[in-house]
C-alpha cells in the first residue's frame, strides 16, 4: 500500500505540473512535448503500479510501453502540424 501511495503522490504532482505548464509561456512545441510527456509518464505509472503490469508477462509490458510511446509521438506530430491524415 505504501508503494501505491508514493506512486499516487507522483501522479498528483505530475497532474499539477502539466496544468501549470499549460499556463506557462514557452515555445509551443515545448509546451506540447511537456504536456504529452507528463501524460505518458502518468499512463505508465497507472498501468505498471495500479494495474500491476509490472508483475505480468514481459509481453504486456512491451505492448503497453509501445502503445503509450507511439500514441504520444503521433499526438505530438499531429499537434505540431507535422502529420495530416
Amino acid at each position: 500500500m505504501k508503494r501505491n501511495t508514493i506512486v499516487w503522490l507522483i501522479l498528483i504532482a505530475l497532474t499539477a505540473a502539466s496544468v501549470t505548464l499549460s499556463h506557462a509561456e514557452f515555445r509551443r512545441s515545448y509546451l506540447i512535448a511537456g504536456i504529452l510527456g507528463f501524460a505518458l509518464v502518468k499512463f505508465l505509472g497507472v498501468a505498471f503500479q495500479f494495474m500491476e503490469i509490472r508483475t505480468a508477462h514481459r509481453g504486456w509490458k512491451i505492448l503497453l510501453i509501445l502503445f503509450g510511446v507511439s500514441f504520444t509521438v503521433l499526438a505530438y506530430a499531429v499537434s505540431r502540424g507535422g502529420v495530416s491524415l
Binding site: 502539466s18 499549460s22 504536456i35 501524460a39 497507472v46
Partner: peptide, 14 residues
C-alpha cells in the same frame, strides 16, 4: 488510463 490522455489532449494542449 483513457482520461489521462483525454484531459491533456482536449483541455490542456495549446
Amino acid at each position: 488510463l483513457i482520461w489521462l490522455f483525454i484531459f491533456p489532449v482536449v483541455y490542456l494542449l495549446p
